[in-house]
Nucleic acid binder design. Structure first.
Lengths: 348, 348
DNA sequence: GGATCGCACGACAACGTTGGCAGAAAATTG
DNA sequence: CAATTTTCTGCCAACGTTGTCGTGCGATCC
């Protein structure tokens, strides 16, 4: 007579599987994780038992026993909603696989003190590591605070990460020059560039990529109109207005992100310019905005979810290896997404 | 000489706190959770010890010992990115508090078989409950599959949830009539309405709210132009074109969501109409889009994150109480957000 | 004033898994 | 074929918490 345990959830445990397969619980555990040093016949028996009982390991027990990191912080700010949701999807997938919890903290303000404050929230909640999506990946106060607390972090999507930091990114430089070449290939010779917020190194890298492609084509960089933007829709309006007010406006505008590109399209429309017939506009990021406008935007896609996954994985590896690794950097592939906002320049 | 445990993470445990406070571990546990049957003096001693040692409970151990639900599914589809990110933020906050994991599953397709397939993914991963944000909250196949597997679920943001279901929502009817009254108060007497996707009951509720406000004002409902939309930007373009092609176009357009409202603004601009001077446009949802357009959109804000939190909390309560509760419904407050896309009708 | 009650608290076991070790089995070698 | 190595497997304890039950103590009730 086995009296049912007081707190039985009726779930299948390693013990059940072990009994079914005629082995010990430890062997089941070995098969489930990695599975070194298990005879093939044994492994198959265990796998069969797992399949038969439809066993799935209890992640709480697992992380308790293994003593692994369970709380990973994610500090976000100024969330381009589209970016954030993709990022969370990727991070959650990796977190579940690793059996760890994601702790979100919002950091709205731009001020150093606000950022430091939000970071201290993490220190108090005992997160073992932190993921920093842009733009906080570049925040001095945040990083100083983490450094002081001895909490490792991974920066995501920095343009030019400092040596010795953990980071995941795309090659902003290469992506921006590829996009510029796309415009050049279409025949544009007078291309305006709207820069991104200078508080992010990716802005500089994108600009550098633009410049490199222009010069490589043998054109005069100084002749290209360049305006300063701040990644916001509003700043894109100001920049585009300035650019189209020029005596000789460009035939194409390359905005450093989609929001500013959308602004450029809006400004053009209000001036009676048709996009892309009269003016080509391209963006960067491929957020949801790129397809909720007309015409749909030619842009650069970042593999956001994959970057978040990579960041979390990298962070966990760092935490598992108790020795501080010197430098881990991962550069993921970007993709040029050609849609309808771009055409050869008007014949005139 | 206490020899350090082999797997010590050096973290503070209940034992440490208990020693510090001169009580037993169990008492610490009681203080931390609820804390019934603890003398005030003891409680204070424990709290002091907790503060001193900066203790925070290990959630893995907690959920293991308490045997609580640890995997909650979240099936999303067609994510308006802004909606999804807000939703995830809320769900994650609640999940962490409860110490449970969020399991995401994407369901892209519209077809019944695809939806059933995605749902079966949950059944196999042993999630104990599922949260269904719109539009899947209304999906027959998904619900049938969950019903068959005996997995409880919570629907979020249905317009008119069926009796006996767990759900969290806002009052779409009231929100839509409030918005309509806002337009009426501004002096509009000829208001066009773009309906939402008929596969969601919230579409019908919003339309009902519009109708009620119109009739309450003593106006002729039949004189108001109504077009069918599908919550997409594209469908909004088609509907707005049709509406503005009318011999007597409306002075205001009420779109059932922000995407379609953005489309209406775009169409107006291309026709040389100024928003809001020549045409007022209002939306619904207050997604990020509402502020990345010009003029910024007057719309209805749903407390998305709060709804997600409420849904998860409700689901966990349902799971904890092993008896199936009959009916739990929670209606959260919406908010009318007045921005710049709305003005009195032109004097003409 | 003794029996009873209720409250506060502690000891112990259990949750489901994995790490360390030791023992058994198989493979290799002389 | 015996000795030795290597590969495989099982036992026990530990991870940090909470549930159950029992004990001690002061208050309450006749």
């Amino acid at each position: 007579m086995s009296k049912p345990s007081r707190r039985s959830r009726g779930s299948i445990t390693v013990q059940d599987v072990a009994r079914e397969a005629g082995v010990s619980a430890m062997t089941v555990s070995r098969v489930v994780n990695g599975g070194t040093n298990v005879r093939e016949a044994t492994r198959e028996a265990v796998l069969a038992a797992i399949a038969k009982l439809n066993y799935s390991p209890n992640s709480a027990a697992r992380s308790l026993a293994a003593g692994e990191a369970t709380q990973i912080g994610l500090l976000y700010s100024n969330p381009s909603a589209a970016y954030l949701s993709q990022f969370l999807i990727g991070a959650l997938a990796a977190a579940r696989r690793a059996g760890c919890h994601l702790v979100l903290e919002a950091c709205e303000g731009e001020r150093a003190e606000e950022q430091a404050e939000a970071t201290r929230g993490f220190v108090q909640t005992h997160v073992q590591g932190v993921i920093l999506p842009p733009p906080l990946s570049e925040s001095g106060p945040v990083r100083a605070e983490l450094e002081a607390a001895g909490i490792p972090w991974v920066s995501v999507a920095m343009g030019l990460p400092p040596e010795g930091s953990l980071n995941v990114r795309i090659d902003d430089f290469a992506a921006a020059s590829a996009m510029t070449r796309h415009l050049l290939d279409m025949g544009h010779r007078h291309i305006g560039f709207i820069r991104g917020n200078p508080n992010q190194t990716s802005s500089a890298e994108r600009y550098r990529g633009f410049c490199a492609a222009i010069e490589e084509a043998g054109l005069d960089l100084a002749a290209m109109p360049v305006e300063q933007g701040y990644f916001t829709f509003r700043s894109g309006i100001v920049a585009s207005e300035a650019m189209l007010d020029l005596p000789k406006p460009p035939t194409a505008i390359f905005a450093s992100n989609d929001d500013m590109a959308a602004a450029a399209v809006g400004v053009a429309h209000r001036r009676g310019l048709h996009v892309p017939q009269d003016l080509s506009v391209v963006g960067f990021d491929d957020t949801a905005l790129a397809t909720t406008m007309w015409p749909e935007l030619t842009t650069v896609r970042q593999p956001i979810a994959a970057m978040a996954e990579a960041a979390l994985t990298m962070l966990l590896e760092e935490l598992r290896a108790d020795v501080r690794t010197e430098h881990a950097e991962q550069v993921l592939a970007h993709q040029l997404i050609v849609r309808e906002s771009c055409a050869p320049p008007p014949a005139a």
